[in-house]
């Protein structure tokens, strides 16, 4: 039988969090971006768009695109992905880093008093993520190299519990 050779799946997961970040969604769906993704061997693009409007999905491309608004948990999408492109929300960033997935953080400059920038810059300066802006995402994606990233050190999980128990006299 002449079956097509099953291609290995290579997924990109894009997440904007619980609000919306339409500029990011538009940018990842731009034909140029899709072309770069294809050239890098990605086969699937999964986009979580939050409260944003349903985007127009380009028709002629080889990469398979899935879009959804919100999900109870995005951990399985993170787990399945070879690359995650995320908004700068701390929750999303840490979840991706805990899963040891390469991460591009796109900062939303339209947010008021953007405190998310602090964490993104810090993680970028310590080479745990690559940070960029919607306008620079294309360039970032072109030169992105996962081997330049370092895993986030393990957090001090029990420290708070120990501290409070001692303080409260247990």
């Amino acid at each position: 039988m002449n079956m097509p050779v099953s291609q290995e799946k290579k997924k990109i997961f894009v997440t904007v969090g619980t609000t919306q970040f339409d500029e990011l969604v538009t940018r990842v769906l731009h034909p140029d971006m899709l072309e770069i993704m294809e050239a890098q061997g990605y086969t699937h693009l999964i986009i979580q768009i939050g409260r944003g409007p349903e985007p127009q999905i380009p028709t002629s491309q080889r990469i398979q695109i899935t879009v959804y608004h919100l999900k109870e948990s995005i951990s399985s999408d993170i787990k399945d992905a070879s690359l995650v492109i995320s908004h700068a929300g701390a929750g999303s960033c840490l979840e991706v880093l805990h899963a040891h997935k390469p991460l591009i953080v796109v900062v939303n400059q339209k947010l008021m008093g953007n405190h998310q920038l602090e964490l993104a810059e810090k993680l970028h300066s310590e080479r745990h993520v690559v940070m960029c802006y919607p306008e620079t995402l294309k360039t970032t994606m072109t030169v992105f190299n996962t081997s330049s990233l370092e895993n986030l050190p393990i957090n001090n999980q029990m420290a708070l519990s120990n501290y409070i128990e001692k303080l409260m006299g247990f």
């Binding site: 701390a90 840490l94 602090e118 303080l167």
Partner: peptide, 11 residues
């Protein structure tokens, strides 16, 4: 006890 968010690195 107040725990400042991980987001706050410098301010």
């Amino acid at each position: 006890i107040f725990i400042e968010s991980i987001c706050r690195v410098n301010t």
